[in-house]
């Protein structure tokens, strides 16, 4: 019964440190149109510029293409994914002030921890391809969200296909 009282205090203590995690996992679903770039705003560094500006993160996200998709239970980059990543590498070379975080994701058809590992494999496959195309490794962070952050929420392949993704999220810069 001691436990109960203390646990309540703990919540209060944790409340103070809320919102300290700044990773922009929601940044990836702004591509749908309205509010494009909104998810990137939190990272600052002049991300407000529009899609028309080829040096803008919004241009990277929507015109270059910020994501690659994967087959079921697979980490292999297909031709389309390699094309997208090659274009990402060109953009990153032309805009050296930016760093990226690659977020790996899985669809819901898998156990939680396996999907975390699978998301890590996917994000790293994208990372390795960018590095092989000349992007410095210290500009790229990777993180896996497994099946925790689905973009589409139906339970069939039309949604799953979009959820099996690695998304390159622009950060302000690797020194920030």
């Amino acid at each position: 019964m001691m436990v109960k009282t203390k646990a309540i205090f703990l919540i209060a203590a944790l409340g103070l440190s809320a919102c300290s995690n700044a990773i922009g996992w929601r940044g990836d679903d702004t591509a749908a149109g309205a509010g494009a770039g909104a998810g990137l705003g939190a990272n600052g560094a002049g991300l407000g510029a529009g899609v028309a500006d080829p040096r803008s993160p919004a241009y990277f996200q929507q015109t270059v293409g910020d994501r690659v998709l994967f087959a079921v239970n697979d980490k292999t980059l297909n031709t389309e994914a390699r094309t997208t990543l090659a274009a990402q590498a060109v953009w990153l070379s032309a805009n050296p002030e930016y760093a990226i975080t690659i977020e790996g994701h899985a669809d819901e058809q898998g156990t939680r921890e396996y999907n975390l590992a699978l998301g890590a494999e996917r994000a790293n496959a994208a990372r390795d391809y960018l590095i092989s195309n000349g992007v410095a490794g210290n500009r790229i962070k990777v993180v896996s969200f497994g099946k925790e952050r689905p973009l589409e929420i139906c339970s069939d392949e039309s949604c799953y296909a979009k959820n099996r993704r690695a998304v390159s999220v622009i950060a302000g810069g690797f020194t920030s």
């Binding site: 436990v3 309540i8 919540i11 944790l14 809320a18 300290s20 939680r112 969200f145 925790e148």
Partner: peptide, 15 residues
Amino acid sequence: ANVQYLTDSASIVLA
């Protein structure tokens, strides 16, 4: 019975 919360919802927690 007797549900108590140990963290807030600010971050994903798993397993």
